[in-house]
Nucleic acid binder design. Structure first.
Length: 270
DNA sequence: AAAGACACCTGGGAGC
DNA sequence: TGCTCCCAGGTGTCTT
């Protein structure tokens, strides 16, 4: 579920319920996620007000006075705010309870996600060396062309590289390449500049549109009903192997790039 | 420095 | 019905 639009939707969904509230309890049921949940979180945040909820790449930042709780949803994670505890289900590994009655609860069946802490002295090493945010001007055609110049990797793997641009996952990489008419398997230094320009625009457009869509299901998400697939009806290629292209009716093809399946239209994407 | 393989983990679906 | 195998939204780390 969690690509950038889902992470952004999550941030927007949880913020109004918990911002300004004081953390009262931290509950760790399963400390072993991708990394061990650090013990220090409780002592840092209990009694402190949550100042803000923000996002860098796919990392959610819960900002407190002395530092931030960093949450990553991995492949299968989700965060919800509960107004009362309906009882703990399987895979619900971590809670922060607040003095307004809200419970922020992390669910993550595959445990590829993470809960970490960063203080105000220096940013966590995971957040250093990240590329630009796709929806800001820091991600632009000029920088993108420059970065692509001497790279021989495929254009699809290139746009999924966190140092090039953050937040482009497997779904939206495939969709952005379709929207810009680029074969995912092309070496990025062989793609025409005009197409790279379209690619930058497509990444921005598609992520933006998906966030707008995510907003419409915000209530369900927060209400505890977080179902995946908001954007599913918009997808042109992802998950459509063997089906016909919506633009030209050709049969869509799947290839593996960097061990990730990639669907594209052999006619529309040259 | 860059590219590729591999790791972590659980659940669901296909095929037998 | 049940077993085995493959696949899945991510990304840090180790090897070439």
């Amino acid at each position: 579920m969690p690509e950038l639009p889902e992470v952004e939707t999550t941030c927007r969904g949880i913020l109004p319920h918990i911002v300004e509230a004081k953390a009262t309890t931290v509950v760790v049921r399963q400390p072993q996620l991708r990394w061990l949940i650090p013990d220090i979180i409780g002592s840092e945040i209990i009694g402190q007000r949550l100042i803000n909820v923000s996002r860098r790449a796919k990392y959610i930042l819960l900002e407190f006075k002395t530092g931030d709780v960093i949450i990553h949803l991995g492949m299968s994670g989700s965060l919800r705010v509960l107004q009362q505890d309906p009882g703990v289900q399987k895979h619900e590994h971590f809670d922060i309870c607040f003095d307004n009655g809200s419970i922020l609860r992390l669910t993550d069946p595959r445990r590829f996600g993470a809960v970490l802490w960063q203080d105000r002295v220096q940013p966590h090493s995971l957040l250093q060396n990240l590329g630009p945010e796709p929806l800001t001007d820091a991600f632009n055609y000029e920088g993108f062309i420059e970065a692509a110049k001497n790279r021989k990797t495929t254009v699809k793997q290139f746009i999924m590289d966190n140092k090039v641009v953050v937040g482009v996952g497997n779904i939206y990489a495939a969709e952005a390449l379709f929207a810009s008419g680029i074969n995912p398997n092309t070496a990025v230094n062989k793609v025409a500049k005009s197409k790279l320009k379209r690619l930058v625009e497509s990444i921005k457009y598609i992520l933006g549109a998906a966030i707008t869509q995510g907003g419409t299901t915000l209530k369900d998400f927060v209400g505890g009903d977080g179902k995946p697939g908001y954007f599913a009806q918009e997808l042109q290629v992802y998950g459509r192997k063997g089906l016909s292209c919506n633009a030209c009716q050709s049969i869509l093809i799947e290839v593996k790039l960097g061990q990730r399946s990639t669907v594209y239209c052999p006619k529309c994407q040259k």
